[in-house]
């Protein structure tokens, strides 16, 4: 049901974990619907210097979290914001139609983390 690429990211997820004192944190989803993603960012000179994730969810949710972190690590925040849920799904070689819901969270979590970072910058 899942592509080889999805299974690779699921079995060997990249960038799992937390960043202590992260510059930005974003979380989306809720436990009732079955998928939750949290993204931690370390930002330097407007670039994503480091990114980590924690995900509660199915294979698609974990694989998209992992793929997303690979796609945006090292990118500027604006470049990262241009990454959509669809970009992530395509980078994984597609996802089963019933799994689009789960995969729709990854980019949303990243956007939330960037907003969190930018919000903090403004209030500084």
């Amino acid at each position: 049901m899942y592509s080889e690429k999805v299974m690779d990211h699921f079995a060997h997820p990249r960038n799992v974990g937390e960043i202590p004192d992260a510059d930005g944190v974003g979380q989306v989803g809720n436990p009732t619907c079955g998928d939750i993603m949290r993204i931690y960012l370390r930002v330097k000179d407007d670039r994503i210097e480091d990114i980590k994730f924690k995900t509660f969810g199915c294979g698609a949710a974990i694989a998209t979290s992992s793929m997303l972190t690979e796609l945006v690590k090292g990118k500027t925040l604006d470049e990262a914001l241009a990454v959509s849920n669809r970009t992530v799904a395509e980078a994984l070689g597609g996802l089963p139609p019933v799994k689009m819901h789960c995969s729709n969270l990854a980019a949303d979590a990243l956007h939330a983390a960037i907003m969190d970072y930018r919000g903090k910058q403004v209030s500084k």
Partner: peptide, 11 residues
């Protein structure tokens, strides 16, 4: 608790 069933099954 704290884990999701499909990812359990896949593993």
């Amino acid at each position: 608790e704290f884990v999701e069933g499909e990812s359990l099954l896949l593993n």
